[in-house]
Design a binder for these strands. Structure first.
Lengths: 224, 224
DNA sequence: TCATAATCGATTGTCAACAATGTTTGGGGG
DNA sequence: CCCCCAAACATTGTTGACAATCGATTATGA
């Protein structure tokens, strides 16, 4: 037996999900124009719900729009990446501080499970799945913190990172998540030394930022 | 000679500003319904731009909506206030860490100026102006940090605080910002001891949170 | 009287046409 | 050859009408 959906999902919401997948999947590359009429045609709806969907992605920071002119997929500068990573350090430490004393078996089970999923995606050489698995792993602390504003901010960061990584992976065969990259993170997250966890978050992010910057450097030298 | 505006402002954006003012000004109290058709009539526009405006306030967290049913002004629970204040501690410390080594004369001038504006509003017994002035004072660090995600998060916090404070001031003659409440904050912000500034932010927020909680307590006892 | 189902009103969701704006392109003059 | 202007084009902004859904109310039967 199939259960009927209790609340009708609007077309705008469904299209927002599809559009998000198209952007994060690289179908719409950063900087490319996003035109209402053509997308409305593609999804088989009117411009109304499509605008609603685009508005949602604009709020998430995946799209930027200028009145009467147009909308395009966000392009992140190296400075933006810096901002994102410094925010990640701040917020992820905060998230762990909030949940530290109420971590339970369900938490430990979840983090091990998500780590296993990440390892599986890496072993399968699936870049898209690896990126998503890594973000899911880091997202656990945010989810458990149960703070609406924190969660919304994390979602914005998460989307931008996914957008950036996905685009660069496809374009430049960028180095993906490493198999041993999260061992310390996971073991400390289920351990009992909050200060060590704080330090791990900082070094973990620093490492990620350096990998990203090295990639940008490589891009620039390629173009010279 | 008056200069023409370079970019045309859409009706939706203008209405978003008016609607935001109406909510923060208390004309639309927390929990009250916000109906598209009646507001469209009131502002003299169609439902299209009005939906756009409402969508903007939904993103800021001032409104909440459920499909096919309705939209209303956000009501904050004591737990929400806790979340907001813990986020404020985290983010404001972060903002000052980011700007600490590049504070200049313009910064010192601005913070003194905004502090003076706050004192003036308190002396004038203008609650609405006092709230706005206090948030402007705290906002300076965020503005100077020049981090888009940080700024967006702060705006969300700022709006919720303004909504909550404004509503409770009107309803319960709640205690407003105190005249000497920000002296330490300002002097430490232009000083040279970052650790002391961090401690001041924590104690400042703790104080604000306790005032709010005492107010909620008073409300509850009044109703019994 | 109570539980259940049909109906009504209110509100939001969706659509297609029209208006306003920004950008581009092509021509004319210096 | 370059610069400026004007007209055409592409895109978004706005509108009013219609459809879908939800919540409450009322009727109905046991």
């Amino acid at each position: 037996m199939t259960y009927p959906q209790l609340k009708k999902i609007t077309m705008g919401a469904q299209i927002a999900a599809m559009l998000r997948a198209a952007i994060l999947g690289g179908e719409l590359a950063p900087g490319s124009a996003v035109v209402e009429t053509s997308l409305a045609l593609r999804f088989g709806v009117s411009r109304g719900p499509l605008r609603e969907a685009m508005r949602e992605l604009i709020d998430e920071g995946l799209l930027i729009t200028v009145p009467y002119t147009g909308t395009k997929v966000l392009e992140l500068s190296p400075a933006d990446i810096n901002d994102i990573y410094s925010m990640r350090i701040c917020l992820e430490k905060f998230a762990f501080e909030q949940i530290w004393d109420r971590r339970d078996d369900a938490f430990r089970e979840q983090i091990l499970q998500r780590h296993a999923a990440l390892l599986a995606a890496i072993d399968a050489n699936d870049d898209v799945a690896s990126i998503e698995a890594e973000l899911n792993l880091h997202g656990l602390a945010y989810e458990m913190a149960q703070n609406a504003i924190l969660m919304k901010t994390w979602n914005g960061i998460r989307g931008r990172l996914q957008l950036y990584w996905a685009a660069h992976h496809r374009a430049h065969h960028m180095q993906g998540p490493q198999r041993t990259g999260h061992d310390d993170y996971v073991s400390l997250a289920i351990g009992n030394d909050l200060d060590l966890m704080r330090a791990e978050i900082e070094s973990h992010m620093q490492r990620g930022l350096e990998i990203t910057k090295a990639q940008v450097q490589g891009e620039l030298s390629t173009r010279v």
